[in-house]
């Protein structure tokens, strides 16, 4: 792909409502790279909460809205979340596919889903695979730190992006990546799972936080605010000093 001049930002509901500063970091980085960021104003949520709970009819309402608005735009769609990115890239297809003979499917939206899927990139994947950048020039200087990277499940296994975030972090001068036991294991978030199966989710979170704290890192870095919100809530409950940051905040911190 030629170097795009404009991207659409699908900012996700969590970033819009809870972590707006993360969205601004993403915008700052993209703009610094000379890319115009457009934010379709009528976007809401990708619909994953309803989809994962099995409520496909409700999920379809939200997905149709999202597909309609994204289809009306052009150029790459950047999603600062592996989970929402995976939803749009893979699960929309399942949502509109229907059964083995297509019954119950919606061909028009299936076609839209496939077209949008090809334009959709998680933020770190966009930087590395589309723009070909791994060193953004971030320098932590006196704020050098040890960070624990948490590969979110849907980015790692859903979208298959294992190396891109690590490459970007390796490009940050002054950032040391900590070794974390069972690093690729789920933090226990899983959306509705954390509520419906709170006990199991809590046990998974406890394992994750124990391993993160044992790693000696001062900050947990990830590409998904859902997982980070979950871990942050757990850390706060425990009274831990460990901080959480979206990868864009680390990449931006250096060149502010």
């Amino acid at each position: 792909m030629t170097h795009p001049k404009t991207v659409q930002l699908f900012h996700t509901c969590i970033i819009n409502e809870v972590y707006p500063e993360v969205g601004m970091s993403v915008v700052n980085i993209l703009e610094r790279l000379g890319i115009e960021v457009r934010v379709p104003a009528s976007q809401t949520c990708c619909g994953q909460p309803a989809f994962n709970a099995g409520f496909h009819a409700d999920a379809r309402k939200v997905a149709r809205h999202t597909l309609d608005l994204l289809s009306a735009t052009e150029g790459p769609i950047v999603v600062p979340s592996g989970s929402c990115g995976d939803m749009i890239t893979h699960q929309y297809e399942m949502l509109f596919h229907g059964d083995s003979r297509g019954q119950g499917g919606e061909p028009a939206y299936l076609a839209k889903a496939r077209a949008v899927s090809h334009r959709c990139y998680e933020f770190s994947v966009f930087l590395v695979d589309v723009l070909g950048i791994t060193d953004l020039g971030a320098r932590l200087g006196s704020n050098a730190m040890k960070a624990a990277y948490h590969p979110s499940c849907h980015l790692l296994r859903g979208l298959g992006a294992k190396t891109q975030p690590r490459a970007l972090l390796a490009g940050v001068q002054g950032l040391e990546c900590a070794d974390v036991k069972d690093q690729e294991e789920c933090c226990g978030f899983g959306g509705m799972f954390s509520v419906k199966n709170a006990a199991i989710s809590g046990a998974m979170l406890e394992n994750k936080l124990r391993n993160l704290e044992a790693s000696g890192a001062s900050t947990v870095v990830s590409c998904d605010m859902g997982c980070l919100m979950h871990m942050q809530g757990g850390l706060r409950r425990k009274g831990s000093k460990l901080e959480v940051k979206h990868i864009s905040q680390v990449l931006e911190a250096g060149f502010k």
Binding site: C153, H154, R157, G158, C186, F189, G190, F193
Partner: peptide
């Protein structure tokens, strides 16, 4: 089926 975070491991 509800008892999964859908982590994909």
């Amino acid at each position: 089926p509800d008892a999964s975070s859908l982590c994909g491991a």
